[in-house]
């Protein structure tokens, strides 16, 4: 079954190209780690696939269909640092944002939306913090709120940008449990990941990225010392240096 297929995808900021001819295919139900050095274009890849940033060319198919018809089936977790956590709102309210598409534009959320959001918070172990102002949550708790917001979308495909960066160990476990559970329900999940040491544990597929796809496929085949060196270039001490 086709989960995700990307062909000839390129993108630039202003005039400098940051993604060049990206090609890959991932099966439905795969849990993929996107790995590559800082500035490799990992975040950009997610944004371009979801048309949050314009592409220069290429096509993307989600479960065989273009984005337009799949928008409601796609969950996105942006990098935690991409929003201002001082914004005056609470955890439950942020999770509810994941339901705005279902609620309908210019309509108010109903009690059942609130219940759905509460259930997602509960799943992330955040039920006690539902009414907590978001600036008063720890980094790990903020990340869980973001995960919960994606969960309520009840999507078929999930794209997450560094959900494990800067979180505590308990949150890391909670998030990984959720990701495995999504995989168990045949969701296709792509996760930008920065910690080379946990790649083999966490992901069944890997996409090595540096401006273009260096390698992709099943972790056991692709995540080799040579390939990782090639992706990161010189200066990487295998299994010692953890690029952030």
């Amino acid at each position: 079954m086709q989960g995700l297929s990307v062909t000839g995808l390129s993108a630039a900021y202003r005039k400098s190209k940051v993604l060049d001819e990206v090609n890959f295919k991932l099966p439905k139900g795969s849990l993929t780690g996107i790995v590559g050095p800082n500035g490799a274009g990992k975040s950009t890849l997610l944004k371009v696939m979801l048309e949050l940033h314009p592409k220069l060319g290429g096509t993307v198919h989600f479960a065989g269909k273009p984005l337009k018809t799949m928008r409601k089936k796609i969950g996105y977790v942006p990098q935690r640092g991409s929003v201002d956590w001082d914004f005056p709102t609470d955890a439950l309210d942020v999770v509810m944002m994941g339901l705005y598409g279902n609620v309908g534009w210019m309509k108010s959320p109903k009690a059942r939306h609130r219940e759905q959001a509460m259930a997602a918070l509960e799943q992330m172990g955040m039920a006690d913090y539902a009414r907590r102002q978001i600036s008063q949550l720890s980094g790990g708790q903020q990340q869980r709120v973001f995960l919960a917001r994606a969960l309520v979308q009840d999507a078929e495909l999930y794209f997450m940008d560094e959900p494990l960066a800067g979180v505590d160990a308990a949150t890391e476990q909670a998030i990984m449990t959720t990701l495995r559970e999504l995989k168990g329900r045949s969701k296709t999940v792509m996760v930008v990941h920065h910690d080379l040491q946990t790649v083999e544990d966490y992901f069944d597929h890997v996409l090595l990225l540096n401006r273009t796809v260096m390698n992709y496929g099943e972790t056991a085949d692709v995540f080799t010392k040579d390939n990782v060196y090639r992706t990161y270039g010189a200066g990487l001490r295998w299994r010692q240096e953890v690029p952030s």
Binding site: K47, L50, L52, I74, S82, F87, M97
Partner: peptide, 13 residues
Amino acid sequence: KLFLFDPAFAKGL
């Protein structure tokens, strides 16, 4: 609120 807090997510929706 959505647009101001998280425009990228808003676009995704």
